[in-house]
Design a protein around this nucleic acid. Structure first.
Lengths: 217, 217
DNA sequence: TAGATTGTTAATCGATTAACAATC
DNA sequence: TAGATTGTTAATCGATTAACAATC
């Protein structure tokens, strides 16, 4: 179970397995990699490799994996069991949606504080999260010891706010703005870009229609 | 410029180039692939291949690409120039944020209608988008001729609502729920999974801290 | 035992990167 | 011309898939 040795595509699939396993009825005690692969439309060997990388005990021939243990192993592997504190900058519609999203808790992330520059928002709370004046960030953020910064601002301010976060203990930026962020080693940036997703969908859709159109000839 | 022949990773990068080009000052007439690669921290040859796949005219040695033409070509290639209609199901916080998001327009997508089952929401509008009773979907959706369905509901109802959309002309599902959707050929599903992104960040962060920790020895 | 299932070693496939020839 | 830059052909790298041996 060497966490650093797993491939990126493999790591992307683990949360998918986990959420699928959680939908299984409580009566399902064991499940085979074959069954998981079939349910999710993936290659069987790939699933087996992924699961064996994340699972401590491994599966047993003819039985498969214990669902309960596998869930526990995946949660452990993905770090869902130890809570990581995050801060959020930019309480617009998207920022607000993320603040009120309940799902982060079970993934081991807690948004400890939010920041904005709008006096109408400062001082209020969304869910359990207090909205602070952005100018208080240098006071508040280091105290919290948060390492993840969620950036949901307009692209114009993104770089400056990113720099501000890095000065105050943030090590990884979850960037929901379209701006490209320049950061020093070894800071992590993860871009969440809806335009990219939309481009994929448009492209696939166009291709599909071409294909279906041609079949009529 | 064969759109169907581009690789998936390459396609993912095109919107990134496009948004970078749009940040350049109007005085910048031409830009080299080399410069783009340096600015975005990518491999130079990769950028050159990506751009030559999407650009009609190509770049000129010693000059590079015309910024204006390249933007036009990328927009054309990504289908931003012809508007695609979408519908959205589930006007919660995230759904509402997407409805009010202005950026989809320039990516060639228009959300033509939204649906929910909450009487408090039905009949209202967010941005330009009318919120309909979900029961009206079979009437409204086919009339619009929308092909993209944005799913922002709880995972429990996701599959049933997905099925409903497919019965009414939707060909591609943009799935923001954590549910795994079962769809027939040749329907497209694109999963937008925050848990996956978070897992990547957590993993990278943990790895970074291990690495930095070790260096102190 | 036979068969389902596991996990691993080897082959294939696709994307990235390096080397190079072409051109303004 | 020399040099920056392009686009392509070949080499490398990494991930997926296929084949197989191990095991309950």
């Amino acid at each position: 179970m060497d966490k650093s040795n797993i491939s990126k595509p493999s790591l992307r699939r683990l949360p998918v397995y986990l959420s699928y396993l959680k939908t299984l009825p409580a009566s399902t005690r064991t499940i085979s990699a074959t069954a998981v692969a079939a349910a999710l439309g993936l290659n069987e060997v790939q699933v087996r490799k992924d699961l064996s990388a994340a699972s401590s005990g491994g599966g047993r021939p003819k039985m498969g994996y214990s669902v309960k243990e596998l869930i526990a192993d995946l949660e452990e592997f993905l770090g869902y069991r130890n809570t990581k504190d995050a801060i959020l900058i930019g309480v617009g519609r998207l920022g607000g949606a993320l603040l009120s999203f309940k799902g982060f808790g079970e993934c081991g992330m807690r948004i400890a504080a939010a920041f904005d520059n709008d006096p109408m928002k400062i001082g209020r709370r969304i869910g359990d999260v207090q909205i602070h004046d952005i100018r208080e960030l240098p006071d508040v953020c280091p105290k919290l010891g948060a390492h993840i910064g969620i950036l949901t601002t307009s692209p114009e301010h993104a770089q400056a706010l990113c720099d501000l976060m890095l000065k105050n203990g943030i090590l990884a930026i979850w960037n929901f703005s379209t701006a490209h962020l320049e950061v020093p080693e070894p800071i992590i940036v993860h871009n969440e870009n809806l335009a990219v997703s939309l481009a994929m969908i448009s492209h696939d859709l166009e291709e599909m229609m071409d294909r279906e159109g041609k079949q009529e000839d």
